[in-house]
């Protein structure tokens, strides 16, 4: 295991940026572990949420932004709801995701492809069109057999449509994407 030099590896800009964008004070965390204890995705995480908090406090930018956990977080906000120090942990996870993407970390390639496919589908259909998402994701990654086991379970329930369903407010959703594009260009 690598020795971490607490002083030279501390990225103060990173810490300040996380605090500013999230509006949370990282030093409030005293590592009780309640966020990890309640996190429903811990078993899939490479770094547990309490350790993400500690690494962020310690300014370990690369390690944090490379974490797969950021992309597996479902923003269920159990961590936020239970934190005894009232830290909005889910908000910090959100900020870290944004930073990772902005700065080209974006987890492993498949994670980025999935998120792009998902958001692309929402942008053009107003909501996610599962089959479209699947085709897009598979064509970019070549993972033909991914989640194939789910097919027999969901097909009989009528959950899979082969054409995007029409929905109200499609235009409004598109506007959100437009506004995001405009504001992020500033």
């Amino acid at each position: 295991m690598k020795v971490v030099n607490i002083i030279s590896s501390y990225n103060s800009e990173f810490v300040e940026q996380v605090e500013e964008e999230s509006g949370q004070k990282l030093n409030l965390c005293y590592q009780c572990g309640k966020c990890t204890a309640g996190c429903p995705y811990t078993d899939e995480y490479d770094i547990s949420v309490s350790q993400i908090m500690r690494l962020t406090q310690a300014g370990q930018k690369d390690k944090v932004l490379q974490a797969n956990s950021l992309w597996l977080c479902a923003t269920c906000e159990s961590c936020t709801a239970r934190c005894p120090n009232q830290i909005d942990v889910a908000r910090i996870m959100d900020v870290l995701r944004h930073m990772a993407r902005r700065e080209g970390y974006s987890g492993s390639g498949r994670v980025k492809t999935f998120w792009d496919s998902f958001l692309g589908s929402v942008k053009s259909n107003g909501r996610v069109f599962e089959v479209g998402l699947l085709v897009n994701y598979i064509s970019h990654t070549g993972r033909f057999w991914t989640d194939i086991g789910l097919g027999p379970k969901v097909l009989p329930k009528g959950k899979i449509h082969f054409k995007p369903t029409e929905m109200q407010g499609k235009k409004e959703v598109e506007k959100i994407f437009m506004r995001f594009k405009e504001e992020s260009a500033k």
């Binding site: 590592q31 009780c32 572990g33 309640k34 966020c35 990890t36 204890a37 350790q51």
Partner: peptide, 21 residues
């Protein structure tokens, strides 16, 4: 070393879920 985030009944026992930080 960690806090508990959930207790729920499981049979006649209580399942205590926490963290070992």
């Amino acid at each position: 070393r960690g806090r508990v985030s959930m207790i729920y009944p499981k049979g006649d026992k209580l399942l205590v879920r926490g963290a070992d930080t």
